[in-house]
């Protein structure tokens, strides 16, 4: 389904989405973040600092609460995600491509009910990029594209005064149908305009990974390269690169105690990172990844090798956040190119 939406009708469309809570990027304190859509939402944002991954996989989530009177059996009360359909507007194609990658992880082996409960009620309305959002973008080199529809339910393309809207999934189609007469039929001239816009977007130069197809094998061959330690020098182990990554999914599980007699508390999941030394440190002090280089290698190899070995696709979608937000300038593109180029 293809249709045309006048930009001035965007907010009416959002308002017409009965039963859906809508979110869109908003500029707050100088930072672009996904927020509940305001009545005058406009999709004129560079990419958000945080990817939209938290909608399906929040930074902190309670699994269950526990309560135990001394000497008695504990009582457990499961906590389920709040029900409700949510639609996220303005998702860039790199972040859209992260969605099926996260879906794979959380459904593989056994299904994670918390992720599924959120994900099944989530829709993503993407926005094609006419030009790279920053000099750090490298989506094209990792199999993506500034106009990719992968993982999205609707893709909007900005045609000046109007959006060209393409329904990618049935959910996307239903969202567009809910807009009713706000959408106009797309004619031949608009089809042509969108084709041209997409071709121009794809033709925009980007930096990139030199040979992504060869990366899994090259990183395997370069596992023992001294470059890992060299390139990791300066890393302060903050984990920003992973917390802001749209496909990083590592987490911790901890008990939070809120009362002593009776014992009360909750078991929570929080994002975690392979960049912290104690992520892998055994209680004995033995640490399988005890150097900065081994932890950089883990992050990069997971994206460009291990995930590919398991699922046949790269886990990196080229959003560039880990590069632009790293306080010490460690650059995953450079790391892959240097290690792969050295073998």
């Amino acid at each position: 389904m293809e249709a045309i939406l006048d930009k001035k009708n965007l907010n009416d469309w959002i308002a017409a989405l009965d039963g859906w809570d809508a979110y869109a990027p908003a500029l707050e304190d100088g930072v672009w973040s996904y927020r509940p859509a305001s009545a005058n939402a406009a999709l004129a944002h560079p990419n958000t600092v945080q990817p939209p991954k938290g909608f399906a996989f929040p930074q902190r989530e309670i699994f269950f609460r526990f309560e135990q009177i001394k000497g008695e059996a504990p009582r457990l009360t499961p906590v389920q995600p709040e029900p409700g359909r949510r639609v996220v507007f303005g998702v860039r194609p790199c972040d859209g491509r992260a969605v099926p990658r996260m879906d794979r992880v959380f459904a593989d082996h056994v299904d994670d009910g918390y992720y599924r409960a959120r994900r099944k009620d989530l829709a993503y309305v993407g926005l094609a990029c006419h030009k790279p959002q920053s000099r750090h973008c490298f989506c094209k080199s990792v199999g993506g594209s500034p106009v990719s529809t992968e993982g999205l339910d609707v893709l909007l393309t900005d045609l000046g005064e109007r959006y060209f809207a393409l329904a990618v999934t049935d959910v996307g189609k239903a969202l567009m149908q809910a807009g009713g007469a706000l959408f106009a039929k797309a004619g031949a001239s608009e089809r042509k305009a969108v084709e041209q816009a997409h071709a121009a977007a794809v033709a925009q130069p980007q930096r990139g990974v030199a040979d992504a197809a060869a990366a899994p094998a090259a990183l395997k061959a370069g596992f023992d390269s001294p470059l890992w330690e060299e390139l990791a020098q300066g890393c302060i182990g903050c984990g920003i690169c992973t917390f802001l990554c749209p496909t990083c999914h590592c987490f911790d599980i901890n008990d939070e105690v809120t009362g002593a007699a009776p014992l009360k508390g909750q078991r929570v999941r929080t994002w975690d990172t392979c960049q912290f030394p104690d992520f892998t440190m055994h209680s004995s002090g033995h640490n399988p990844r005890d150097t900065l280089g081994s932890r950089l290698r883990q992050r990069v190899s997971h994206k460009f090798r291990y995930f590919h070995e398991n699922f046949g696709m790269l886990q990196c979608t080229g959003c560039g956040r880990c590069v632009s937000q790293c306080p010490v300038g460690i650059d995953i593109v450079q790391v892959v190119n240097r290690v792969a180029g050295s073998i």
């Binding site: 992880v105 959380f106 593989d108 082996h109 994670d112 999914h249 590592c250 987490f251 975690d272 892998t280």
Partner: peptide, 9 residues
């Protein structure tokens, strides 16, 4: 941590 192939530990 998770035991089910998701937390990455």
């Amino acid at each position: 941590k998770c035991g089910v192939g998701k937390c990455g530990r």
